[in-house]
Design a binder for these strands. Structure first.
Length: 661
RNA sequence: GCUGCCGUAGCUCAGUGGUAGAGCACGUCAUUGGUAAUGACGAGGUCGACAGUUCAAUCCUGUCCGGCAGCACCA
């Protein structure tokens, strides 16, 4: 501390009041001065809005806040708790399993994990023991103290205790010139950490649970050694923990794989791993979505095409996919001697298309294009095959055969901006109609090695940003993560349990037109390269339907529901009337069936409710006599008896596909 | 692909070194019942595949296939 430091410093508390204390006091001192209750509850302080250790020495005037379990900044508080939790778990594991090395242990959205190095795998049976030891460490109430160490001391220390990964990491931090801080928990155990932390292990709420263990690569690189990642969830109190576990259970109920079975939409089987067998109802849903997309694309002046599944490798060589993407491609080689005729092209090798772009360029290249033809928006619901690694497959969200709502916009450089804007606005309108307003956008800009001049990149990056701004989409930056052929936007939706899935995308491409020789004649009479915008809104029908199912927990909006109405008579005397009601509903454009089985109405309601049929039309003697129907909505006990004509009109209106506003 | 776990009836799951069980679903019969399960009876499985150990394997071992979670990769 410099000699000029004032003897007294002034703290401004959250309520605006001011308080003075001797310079060099700690947060804990101030808390104690305010009151013993607060001193006990204090977990950390906030100095000018920044979270700090309670033991931080106060050296100047500042806005000052004491953080307790009641802190209003829930996210920051939880992170503090979880970060401590990670350390407590690490200590517990090292006490229980000597010889285990520690590496990284950050907080996550619902808890924390820690990556360990240990030859023997952790098993779910170990979880209880670890939890118990953690609770014990909490009970020991070990003081947590920050220490700043010179880098070489830290390297030597971690090496001396066999923590080679920590030593490696310290060396790296030191190289960047950053300070090395360690947090000591009790007398012996310590971990390299930036902090902040709570003052002692006793402050950690015993509201954590170890959830799972899995492999994870050191520094996130598959070439490195695989570590064991132990995940835990952690909360402010046991009630919150219980609520979280409850949420997970609920999420499981809306898992798209489960709903797909319960609703009779699709199935998958090992003879076609990573592919989808769409059942009649599932395919109806698929087609509704397809019809919706087709209408929107037509309104947005796209033209639709269809291109081959199997294409000679020559095209993939020209496009660069053969070199860059071959390990993900299904290659069809001709087996010798299986045909009883001589095939002209038995020597040739074909591959199932993993992407549609090269095929679209082939269409573009037919006939000489003029600048007057641009922008040319070429759409295809293109079925693509990619040999995805087995561990990546996930229901219908990550498959090996999927159908992209793909399109390529061939345009001039000057049109990038307007086309990007038009696309973002189309995308946003479609997401909105499908019920998604919480869309994450990631913007990836120029990577270190890239094609195209800086000038063009400036233009392309600017266009993508402007397009987001124009329709009010906020994005986060992924610096340097763009493709080598151009910058991109990724539109990400989140599934039930918080996993993110990329759906839409917009990519500017300066390279493929070049590689595949696309050109147009400009106003100047000379030939020019068009720019290609690769874009998708749903991403793939398969993934998007999975997201839709989870988003709505199977309770799809009426226009998307594959089976919209089931007409169920209460007694068989009403069968004839039920059939006539169904016929009229069908004539009004609804997807409807009857349930004439000899079952009680309770049974029928239960069954169709479980199958997520949105509307049940119940008819008994009363309805048959009055010419009415009684409607029951999915998940709603209330019923409503309407004149048939009214019901028909109402349901038909409700079942209308959203069209361009 | 990597790590861990898993694969028994259509589904959800018990179970055992001596070739298997429940609930629901399914079929038959009876029941005509006003808003989330009517009852009785019946049929269903080479226990994922292939090898090995064993007198004997659904169970133990190995390999493969598939699934789940995470990592890596990706729409």
């Amino acid at each position: 501390m410099s000699a000029a430091a004032p003897a007294e410093i002034r703290l401004t508390l959250p309520d605006g009041s001011q308080r003075t204390c001797p310079a060099g006091s700690t947060g804990a001192d101030v808390a104690a001065a305010i009151g013993p209750g607060l001193a006990k509850a204090a977990l950390a302080i906030r100095l000018d809005g920044k979270l700090r250790d309670l033991s931080t020495k106060l050296t100047g005037d500042a806005r000052f806040e004491i953080v307790t379990l009641k802190d209003k900044n829930e996210a920051e508080l939880l992170e503090l708790i979880r970060h401590d939790g990670a350390h407590v778990m690490a200590q517990a594991v090292q006490e229980l399993f000597p010889g285990t090395q520690i590496t990284f242990g950050p907080a996550t959205d619902d808890g924390f994990y820690y990556d360990f190095v240990r030859d023997q795998p952790f098993t779910p049976e170990d979880f209880a023991a670890i939890e118990q030891r953690m609770a014990e460490i909490v009970k020991r109430d070990l003081p947590i103290k920050r220490e700043e160490w010179p880098a070489d001391k830290a390297v030597d220390y971690f090496k001396s205790i066999g923590e080679t990964y920590k030593a490696e990491w310290v060396a790296e931090i030191a190289k960047r010139g950053e300070a090395i801080s360690v947090y000591r928990q009790g007398d012996g155990w310590l971990d390299l950490c930036m902090g902040p932390h709570m003052p002692s292990t006793g402050k950690l709420p015993v509201a954590f649970k170890i959830m799972k263990v899995s492999g994870a690569y050191w520094r996130g690189d598959a070439k490195n050694r695989q570590l064991q990642r132990v995940y835990a969830t952690a909360w402010r109190d046991p009630k919150e923990l219980a609520a979280h576990l409850q949420r997970l259970e609920e999420a499981e109920k809306r898992d798209h794989r489960r709903l797909g079975r319960e609703m009779g939409l699709f199935h998958q089987q090992e003879e076609a791993a990573g592919m989808v067998f769409w059942h009649p109802l599932g395919w109806t849903l698929y087609r509704s979505l397809e019809r919706f997309m087709r209408e929107r694309l037509e309104a947005a002046r796209y033209v639709e095409v269809k291109t081959p599944q199997l294409v000679d490798r020559k095209l993939w060589e020209a496009s660069g996919h053969w070199e860059k993407f071959r390990q993900n491609m299904y290659i069809a080689e001709n087996e010798e001697g299986i045909r009883d005729y001589a095939a002209d092209d038995s020597e040739r090798i074909f591959a199932l298309k993993p992407m549609n772009c090269p095929c679209h360029v082939q269409i573009f290249n037919q006939g000489l294009k003029s600048y007057r033809d641009l922008p040319l928006r070429m759409a295809e619901f293109g079925s693509c095959h990619r040999f995805e690694p087995g561990g990546a497959l996930h229901g219908i969200m990550r498959v090996r055969n999927f159908t992209q709502d793909d399109a390529h916009i061939f345009c001039t450089e000057d049109q990038i901006i307007s086309e990007s804007q038009a696309f973002c606005s189309l995308l946003q309108s479609i997401y909105k109609d499908l019920g998604f307003t919480d869309v994450r956008v990631k913007f990836s800009d120029r990577p270190a090695t890239r094609a195209g001049s800086d000038e063009i990149w400036d233009k392309a990056e600017g266009a993508l940003k402007e397009a987001c701004d124009a329709v009010g989409l906020e994005y986060t930056l992924n610096p340097g993560e763009g493709a080598f052929y151009g910058p991109k936007l990724e539109f990400v939706l989140r599934d039930t349990i918080g996993r993110d899935w990329q759906c839409g995308t917009l990519q500017v491409d300066f390279v493929l037109p070049e590689r595949l020789g696309a050109e147009y004649v400009g106003a100047d009479g000379a030939r020019h390269r068009p720019v290609m915008l690769h874009r998708a809104i749903l991403g793939s029908f398969e993934r998007f339907i999975g997201i839709l199912l989870e988003h709505y927990a199977g309770k799809l909006p009426l226009w998307l529901a594959p089976l919209q109405v089931v007409v169920a008579p209460i007694v068989s005397d009403a069968d004839g009337y039920a059939q006539s009601v169904a016929d009229q509903l069908e004539a009004a454009g609804l997807r409807v069936t009857t349930d004439l089985r000899n079952e009680k109405i309770n049974y029928k309601i239960r069954e169709h409710s479980l199958a997520k049929v949105p509307v049940l039309a119940i008819v008994g003697k009363k309805e048959a006599e009055q010419g009415s129907i009684t409607l029951r909505r999915l998940g709603v006990e209330a019923q409503e008896t309407l004149a048939l004509a009214d019901a028909l009109a109402r349901l038909a209106a409700e079942a209308k596909m959203p069209s361009r506003a």
